[in-house]
Nucleic acid binder design. Structure first.
Lengths: 233, 233
DNA sequence: AGAAATTTGTTCGTATGTATA
DNA sequence: TTATACATACGAACAAATTTC
């Protein structure tokens, strides 16, 4: 017998997710507000408390809700971190290629540069300049890596586009999982290479001076340089 | 008292996620392969079966694993759909703005165009052409919307960049949740507007003829047109 | 301040349907 | 067909933290 055309009875835990999503989207449930108790939800949805918990765990893991023992479940106020973790786990699990990742980063940073020259705050301009200084005088691999990442992240944040920022954060997490591979190739190369330093200088100068042309040129040099290492691989 | 510096005892369900992630990343567990039974996992990790289930549910929801009653849990072979749902739920819940969304789509499609003129397969060229035809002769709002989406999705897929494709798929889902709002404004406007039709024609022509300049021009006209509706809002 | 009630955290037990040999 | 292993789902119990009175 075919078992495909049966009525698809959604699994109980999905009821919870849909219910909460609906409440949030309808504005009925706002950030910071408390959800009904697990037992009450179970009764409302006609499922067991265990199933309710499975659904709530998923929401918690995505960063939509957070729970405190003894208190209850709440709609999250700031759920960047768990969201980033979930996103990056998804990307990582899919096992996508590094070339695609680099290409995608390039794309996002280019867009960010377009926006950053218009929207970067004074504070962000100062910050990205500081990251550049730190990067140039860094002495250990780890320092270089961290200031490099911080510099690029500041560029992205200066775009003030939430999708851009969120997506890039997740990519950064994915890169971390590649580090054992990347480091030996790219970071080591960064050590004594003037080209990369110049690229970073131009990139930052573009943001600070709202000079799109210079910023994009720096970005291009930066990724052209990285691309070399791909070709050697 | 500060409660930040306590030993962070990971919640039981996180042990499951980390365990599976580790097994997948180490190559010890490959797509299609079966996980240990829930009871066995519970014993291995020293937690209860219910906690194991919570962790597995999260992985299932992200599309990393799938389970069949009676058989067991397996590493997914193709987990695009659940992954997309999770991604879009995250985006939706974060409640990001529509302007940011449009800006981000523009960015992704521009990059896709750059790649598509080089990498689009013959089949994809035929497909995107067909979507254009269908779009031009569509009569209902729903038809127009669906062919429009399919056309843009084909462009993205022609880029052959997994990150681009995955991210855009999620965005498409987010858009669906905006439809009640969008439809009255944009789709209605599409009905009798030649500018948008021309934009789509140029866009497709660019992909089919590997003509980057034309493709980008079509893309720009397309999004410039959409931008109008933002300003009116 | 303290006790009681409420709520989540975690586990165990059990009944049921499904897949597989 | 039968037997076994397994996931599914529910219910109950106790621990731990919080809130409330």
């Amino acid at each position: 017998m075919s078992s495909q055309e049966e009525e698809k009875k959604d699994k109980p835990y999905k009821l919870v997710i849909d219910h909460v999503r609906g409440q949030v989207l309808s504005g009925n449930l706002k950030p910071g507000e408390r959800l009904p108790g697990e037992r009450e939800l179970a009764e409302q949805l006609g499922i067991s408390r265990n199933s309710v918990r499975e659904g709530l765990r998923i929401l918690e893991n995505m960063g939509v809700t957070s729970s405190t023992q003894g208190a209850g479940h709440y709609i999250s106020l700031n759920f960047d971190e768990p969201m980033t973790e979930t996103l990056s786990l998804i990307y990582t699990m899919k096992g996508m290629g590094r070339d695609d990742l680099t290409q995608f980063r390039w794309c996002l940073e280019r867009e960010a540069m377009h926006l950053a020259v218009d929207y970067a705050s004074e504070q962000q301009k100062i910050l990205i300049g500081r990251h550049l200084e730190e990067l140039l005088k860094a002495e250990t691999e780890k320092e270089r890596y961290e200031h490099d990442m911080a510099l690029h992240m500041t560029l992205i944040e200066a775009s003030r586009n939430d999708y851009l920022i969120t997506t890039y954060r997740a990519l950064t997490n994915v890169i971390e999982s590649y580090i054992p591979v990347f480091r030996g190739k790219i970071i080591e190369g960064m050590k004594s290479n003037d080209k990369l330093e110049d690229a970073h200088r131009m990139l930052v100068m573009g943001v600070v001076n709202s000079d799109l042309r210079t910023g994009l040129e720096g970005l291009n040099r930066h990724f052209e340089y990285i691309r070399q290492f791909r070709d050697l691989q």
